[in-house]
């Protein structure tokens, strides 16, 4: 029952609507970014719990292991993670976490009715009160901090590559 109203929509059609901000403006971009960052960071979180679990020996270990065993497990995990793909991935995660955090605060404020304008008589060519300056400022702050986090991690990465 999606775009064309003919038949029921497939997951791919809904995914397309969910991921394309179109020409609806800043708030729609925030919706898409919050959604994507939420899913990606959740997947990172699952991977992070599994990976830190491997540092102490993996799923078979449920007590404090021998030092030599733990050291070997640690070395193996480090070998797996020493990989430019994971490095760049971590920089992206930094970007997404910063974005999701600050934008999330913006959404919590909006959900509790703070930082929005008050209902007023509509006037021609004036933006809706919910698209308030405060809301948009926090959105741009989240983007700035996310870019800062991305640049910071990328810079660290570059220095690692430098001899």
């Amino acid at each position: 029952m999606l775009a064309r109203g003919v038949g029921r929509s497939s997951v791919f059609q809904t995914l397309k609507v969910m991921l394309t901000p179109g020409r609806y403006g800043l708030e729609r971009w925030s919706y898409v970014l919050q959604r994507v960052s939420g899913v990606v960071v959740s997947l990172y979180f699952i991977a992070h719990v599994l990976e830190t679990g491997n540092f102490v020996g993996g799923i078979t270990v449920w007590g404090v292991p021998e030092y030599s065993f733990a050291e070997r497990a640690y070395e193996e995990t480090v070998k797996l993670l020493k990989n430019p793909v994971f490095d760049v991935g971590l920089a992206v995660i930094g970007f997404l976490v910063a974005l999701h955090t600050i934008n999330g605060i913006r959404l919590i404020l909006a959900h509790f009715g703070f930082s929005l304008g008050r209902p007023r008589r509509p006037e021609p060519f004036s933006p809706p009160p919910s698209f308030s300056t405060k809301q948009r400022a926090i959105f741009w702050l989240s983007i700035s901090l996310a870019v800062f986090a991305l640049l910071y991690t990328l810079d660290s990465l570059m220095r690692v590559f430098r001899p």
Binding site: F45, I46, V49, L50, T52, G53, F55, V56, G57, I59, V61, W62, G63, V64, P65, Y67, A70
Partner: peptide
């Protein structure tokens, strides 16, 4: 189920890390 597994597995890692070395 996934959440419960992550909680149990993550808690285990924290406990081991806390007593290790």
């Amino acid at each position: 189920a996934v959440g419960a597994f992550l909680l149990v597995y993550g808690t285990r890692t924290i406990l081991i890390a806390n007593a290790l070395v």
